[in-house]
Design a protein around this nucleic acid. Structure first.
Length: 562
RNA sequence: UACCCCGUGGUGUAACGGUAACACAGCGCCCUUUGGAGGCGUUAUUCAUGGUUCGAAUCCAUGCGGGGUAGCCA
């Protein structure tokens, strides 16, 4: 069932896929149907990406389908803005990969409100549900005590009448509920007559004012699964204790088989970030980030804007596996996955983030050379391009040190360095302003050391990047770092106090001229610096780039050790 | 507190009663016109105790540790 030109790793094996494979083998199911059921009350994050890749991945690997279903049973918390973003993110993530395994057209639990209500009536008829008049506080207390309430044994006819009047909007919010009649002394709290419907005089984003009662998660989710013919209903660990209720609902309605079954796996936790919708919402509303799609956010929209690709996120989802152990994944795994893909696919470019000017004193003033530069050493088919060289250049200020630390093999007074694709130069003079800041370096080039030249084979320890001053184009470059300074910001204390004050730095970079036509679909490697993607803030003639991820920097690590 | 689930190197996973392996991270070396990439090497693991078995990470029991649930949220 796999598509041929898939560059993500081979399908993994895990306990859920083992079950699916066995169910197919044994003939329990002929065709697998999974689902992804987000509540539209926030933006999707990388944890949802794990779930999407699991559900669509299974559909894809086993020749089944996966439905997208908005779990929209609480009109108070849900908004169409979220629906739009969720649909966009899911499509972005599975497009070209598992889109053909999308089941029914993306829909809503609210599509089934009518059928759901009929099931509720049926439950009442069977004596498996009743209308309860207790207040929320009373309900809580009785449940805690394991005590049966006074309305539990209402006659079926009365329940039916009350339920119909609830539906008709005769009672105020919270006045009554429909509850499952299970077992008030059950050790599992979710079996102590859970609420199935509550009264909410609220307008719903899909159904408008058609309904005055709304089903609870357990009821709506379980029966929506059944209605859609879901075979494997995969959710996160916190729903584990709900599973007996899931099974009870299906059994009590006496539904014909095959019934769906619920399986649970551990949600994703990543170091140096937070993952709950509530906390992400706080970062946005407190202005600690610039919106849900801020490139520092672990949201799918943020990661996309940062420059991460759908295939990269999918590879990551496959790399981390699926278990029931509540683990903490090192964000370095994500970073590694992204680098691995970009190293294979990214065109190389020369750009200087923090420029310092150098003058090649023995190079003629008006002369310009077009030098050949390889586009991607990992991909010979990517070809090469020309970059202009002239007497005045910019190099990275970090690539010069007046008093170099040990093992520093970049440019230093009297020292030599190779300019990538160009000449070996020697720093002859350091020019400073009145304040003592280095403002210019005067260098001489070994004019025979260019590729193919007589001295081109000379062994020079350092090679640095550069751009021709006269030809450079400017770009706003946004340098992102981890959003939090500690590996587990929500371990203890206020997570917001650990926000990294240096998580965003904006510089004006000098770029080689070919970047003028930068392609938003591409990720560029700025040699020796990292991978960069065009930000949507870019306009014709105005380049804005985001640093998706740095290159591995062993020198920085060396410096840090001291 | 009650109930449920889970414990394999620093981290994430594999091994499905038969030699504990892979990736990330770390460390060292080699190579390099990216201190990138790549190559080679290396450190380090079955929560504890008992039991079953020729043989246990795997099965059982107890203990310990971690997580989840106890909304008219999902």
């Amino acid at each position: 069932m796999t598509t041929p030109n898939e560059n993500a790793p081979a399908a993994p094996s895990d306990f859920i896929r083992d079950i699916v494979a066995e169910d197919l083998r044994s003939g329990k199911h002929e065709k697998i149907c999974t689902r992804f059921p987000p509540e539209p009350n926030g933006y999707l994050h990388i944890g949802h990406a794990k779930s999407i890749c699991l559900n669509f991945g299974i559909a894809r690997e086993f020749g089944g389908i996966c439905n997208i279903r908005m779990d929209d049973t609480n009109p108070a918390k849900e908004e169409t803005e979220y629906i739009d973003s969720i649909m966009f993110d899911v499509k972005w993530l599975i497009d070209e990969w598992a889109n053909e395994h999308l089941g029914r057209a993306p829909g809503y639990a609210s599509d089934y409100f009518g059928q759901l209500y009929d099931y509720a009536v049926e439950l009442v008829r069977k004596g498996n549900a009743y209308v309860c008049d207790m207040t929320p506080e009373e309900t809580d207390e009785y449940r805690r005590l394991g005590k049966e309430g006074p309305f539990r044994n209402r006659p079926s006819e009365e329940n039916l009448d009350l339920l119909a009047r609830m539906k008709a909007g005769e009672f105020p919010d919270g006045a009554r509920t429909l509850r499952a009649k299970i077992d008030m002394s059950a050790p599992n709290m979710w079996l102590r007559d859970p609420v199935l419907y509550r009264i909410r005089h609220a307008e719903h984003h899909q159904t408008g004012n058609a309904w005055r009662i709304y089903p609870m998660y357990d009821f709506a989710h379980t029966l929506s699964d059944y209605i859609e013919g879901i075979t494997h209903s995969i959710c996160t660990l916190e729903f584990e204790v709900h599973r007996p209720l899931y099974d009870w609902l299906l059994a009590s309605l006496d539904l014909p088989r095959p019934l769906p079954h619920q399986y649970e796996f551990a949600r994703l936790n990543l170091t140096y970030t937070v993952m709950s919708k509530r906390k992400l919402m706080e970062l946005v509303s407190d202005g600690l980030v610039n919106g849900w799609d801020d490139p520092r956010m672990p949201t799918i929209s943020g990661l996309r804007r940062r420059g991460m690709t759908a295939s990269g996120l999918r590879s990551f989802a496959y790399n981390i596996g699926i278990t029931k152990y509540p683990s903490m994944t090192d964000v370095a795994v994500l970073e590694h996955t992204v680098r691995e893909e970009f190293n294979r696919t990214s065109p190389r470019r020369l750009a200087v983030l923090r420029p310092i000017k150098i003058v090649i004193t023995n190079y003629p003033g008006g002369q310009i050379e077009e030098l050949e530069a390889v586009n991607n050493p990992e991909d010979p088919g990517a070809g090469s391009r020309k970059i202009p060289f002239s007497r005045e250049l910019f190099i990275e200020s970090a690539d010069f040190a007046e008093t170099p630390p040990p093992k520093y093999f970049r440019l230093k007074p009297g020292g030599e360095v190779r300019l990538k694709y160009a000449y070996i130069i020697k720093c002859d003079e350091v020019v400073k302003d009145d304040a003592g800041n280095v403002i210019e370096l005067r260098c001489s080039a070994d004019l025979e050391s260019k590729t193919g030249g007589a001295t081109s084979r000379r062994k020079i320890k350092g090679t640095i990047h550069w751009v021709s001053a006269a030809h450079a184009i400017e770009a706003e470059v946004r340098l992102y770092d981890r959003l939090f300074t500690v590996p587990e910001p929500d371990a203890d204390g206020d997570f917001k106090s650990f926000v990294n004050p240096n998580s965003l730095e904006v510089v004006t970079a000098k770029c080689e001229p070919s970047l003028k036509d930068a392609d938003p679909a591409l990720r560029y490697q700025f040699e020796r610096l990292g991978y960069f993607a065009l930000d949507p803030d870019s306009q014709p003639g105005v380049l804005v780039l985001n640093r998706t991820i740095t290159l591995k920097d062993t020198w920085a690590k060396e410096v840090k050790k001291r």
